[in-house]
Design a binder for these strands. Structure first.
Lengths: 355, 355
DNA sequence: CCGATTTAAGTTAGCGATATCACAGAATCT
DNA sequence: AGATTCTGTGATATCGCTAACTTAAATCGG
């Protein structure tokens, strides 16, 4: 471990400096600053004046050592490029800021090892609670279980949890996918493909289950060759996956007339492949995605997709966490409904709109 | 301020617990764990054994209080939806992780007040250094100046800094824009529009200056009516801005035959408007963007754009910060070159490629 | 074989904050 | 009036950790 030479310019102001400047004891200064206990108006004023003058900021490490509370919560995200992340954090902040909590973010960068490291960092810094929005893995589950055992309040987002002591919030991906595929069926499609995961790995993927069941409920037996995608299980599917998936499906003897893509990125890749192949959308092939990323309204044609209430998931998770921190011990779960947004990539009759 | 009831399940293990369990003094335990000073092999082993058994993790607040070092650095980002953010953080982590630093991220959400709050939070927690990647504002500058005065090592990214004691890293946006516009001129265009900022507010925007000078250097006098965009100064320009900007330019008596958009989102909005108007790209209007977001290769047609070395900026910023923390006091600045990526939105002759 | 060095521990004293106890004077109650 | 409560303040002891000092045995070189 390399040595670090500190560049101590001026020592930061401490409570003792304030007390000296204000002519009171440190305890009185502390009380004045925190508004606890009895402090005369005179004393309060001169302390506040000193705080202002010396530009005092309490040392949170010192405070935390004593009160065992950091007023900070940690958020673990899979990665920040993800279009969710921002909205999710906004939702959480909306709830946590007014309560005086600071929010720190760390990312796992899709690597379980990095996720564990970030999680450990939060624990080492003794945050008051954790919100974890990374994808579920066996290794990750083990780490989370130990978090719970250590008594640190924990809420997960979009991740099924298999043990107690945790709250969780999720969107109804199953229903969203079901609705999207049902919409395609209503538009007259019978041969509907899924791009985003290899058939063998789709058991865990609720979006895929929604796709399968929508077909079955309409009396259409899903065909395995209509499902294409990466085999990496819960990995995020990309534009490239969508592009290659579409090419693959187009080569079939009787190719699908409609595509339900695992997410909007995948859908955009599929659209691109369709253009390349000279297929027109939605006449030759209809395409629907999932997530309603900002760009979805700006593809050509605009993309039909499913919107999940991201900010609300963040808010709810934050509320759950606050309740946990304040002592609730029963587990709670919230499932938020998704909303189908029909645009021209599946229905030409719609006006060209950005909504 | 609401009261918080702690849910103390089991008190976390302390060094004293370890010492007791291992049958040594706390100091020996500390030395064994930190690998400092002399510790016999026997003692080290039994301490490590106790650490393992009791699942001990040092209390970083307590340690920080003593050693005045947190081994953590704070990163302030404008918002996380931004496609940079992720890459930027990856670059930083690549440098900081191996040095034993933990990275915490906070966002300002494009609000100066929130940025200040996040910055203050980092300072209150006494991080060892700060990397700030938010857009420059007067209020923000003031806050940063005070950071420097407090002796906290600071590096900025993509933000011109007007005072000393700060390192900064930036991409050569000017050159990138210059190259893109020069490319448009070489493709035979003479009437080239800029979408992304109102002409009166473009003074600060290096991308706009690059546009103007590329025109002038080619002997083309820029026309004010060819520049359209929001008036909010350094705000981020969106798809909507691009869409409306394109509509506006198309209404001119002699509309531009090429568009240089402030960023890829704006370019995508403009492309969408062009499609809506029945203009073909690049025959009726060529369009170039900036940033090379992942989707840029998947628009129809693929978008010509300028790529800036994001991860490298993150790495360099992290290296600068480490040097500062270790005592360097001269200011350093790095400017990274951008790279023009020509695709079919400006040049039809190219093969359809995703590179 | 003896002083000097190295190795291996333990003791003490804080870091900067707050909880707790102690105490004095003012205000209120019975 | 005397007891009781309310105000306002300060002294002291920690929180969990490590720097600095101290002690003591082991090792070493001439």
């Amino acid at each position: 471990m390399p040595r670090r030479i500190p560049v101590s310019t001026t020592r930061p102001t401490t409570l003792a400096d304030i007390a000296r400047q204000a002519g009171v004891s440190v305890m009185t200064a502390s009380r004045a600053i925190n508004g606890s206990g009895y402090v005369s108006e005179d004393a309060r004023k001169s302390v506040m004046h000193a705080v202002e003058k010396l530009n005092y900021r309490p040392n949170l490490s010192a405070r935390q050592l004593k009160v065992r509370r950091l007023d900070a919560i940690g958020i673990l995200l899979p990665d920040i490029a993800n279009p969710f992340s921002s909205e999710l954090v906004n939702g959480m902040k909306r709830v946590l800021d007014p309560e005086g909590y600071t929010v720190f973010i760390a990312t796992g960068n899709r690597s379980t090892r990095q996720e564990d490291a970030s999680l450990q960092s939060f624990l080492d810094h003794r945050v008051d609670g954790l919100i974890v929005a990374t994808r579920g893995t066996a290794m990750g589950d083990k780490a989370l279980r130990s978090v719970v055992q250590q008594g640190v309040p924990l809420v997960t987002i979009g991740r099924p949890i298999h043990f107690r002591g945790v709250d969780s919030v999720t969107a109804n991906h199953y229903q969203g996918a079901f609705d999207a595929v049902t919409h395609l069926i209503r538009m007259g499609h019978k041969r509907i493909g899924f791009i985003g995961i290899a058939p063998a790995h789709g058991k865990q993927l609720r979006r895929y289950q929604g796709y399968l069941n929508a077909l079955r409920e309409a009396g259409i037996e899903p065909r395995e060759e209509y499902t294409v995608g990466p085999t990496e299980g819960p990995a995020f599917a990309t534009q490239e996956d969508g592009y290659h998936g579409m090419l693959q499906l187009a080569q079939l003897h009787r190719p699908p007339t409609a595509i339900f893509a695992r997410n909007d990125f995948t859908a955009i890749g599929a659209m691109h492949a369709a253009h390349t192949l000279g297929l027109s959308i939605p006449d030759d092939v209809a395409i629907a995605g999932f997530d309603n990323i900002p760009l979805a309204a700006f593809t050509m044609p605009p993309l039909t997709t499913v919107e999940q209430p991201i900010a609300q998931q963040g808010e709810e998770a934050a509320r759950f966490l606050l309740e946990r921190i304040r002592g609730r011990s029963q587990d709670r779960t919230a499932t938020m409904e998704c909303r189908l947004i029909v645009r021209q990539s599946t229905d030409l009759r719609l006006r060209n709109s950005h909504r």
